[in-house]
């Protein structure tokens, strides 16, 4: 059974992502929403710094939250995919638990 994690704040402003990475496990999904989308720039380094293996995690970002803040979808790192709200619902269905870090 896997978990959908949502994170809504930037790691430079909050320890949410750090805590999320501590308890996320292979097969889980981390969905960046609201101000959490700024983490597309810091996620890889933060995970490496904490010794967290990102390769087993699905990393997503909510498209409208990303573009609203001036970040481009085509500039996303390869391991992060953008989803819309339909995709958000699909992720919630696909994962048994959801943990919302806010």
């Amino acid at each position: 059974m896997t978990t959908l994690h949502t994170v809504n704040k930037h790691s430079l402003n909050s320890d949410l992502l750090s805590s999320c990475l501590r308890v996320a496990r292979a097969g889980d999904c981390i969905l960046l929403i609201e101000d959490g989308i700024y983490n597309v720039r810091t996620l890889e380094d933060l995970a490496a710094g904490q010794g967290c293996e990102l390769s087993g995690l699905q990393c997503c970002v909510l498209r409208d939250d990303l573009t609203a803040r001036g970040l481009a979808e085509n500039a996303l790192p390869d391991f992060i995919s953008a989803v819309d709200h339909t995709g958000f619902v699909a992720l919630a269905c696909a994962h048994r638990q959801s943990v919302h870090w806010f």
């Binding site: 978990t3 308890v23 496990r25 638990q97 959801s98």
Partner: peptide, 8 residues
């Protein structure tokens, strides 16, 4: 604990 939970 999270994996064993129904709701978190």
């Amino acid at each position: 604990i999270i994996r064993q939970s129904d709701v978190v």
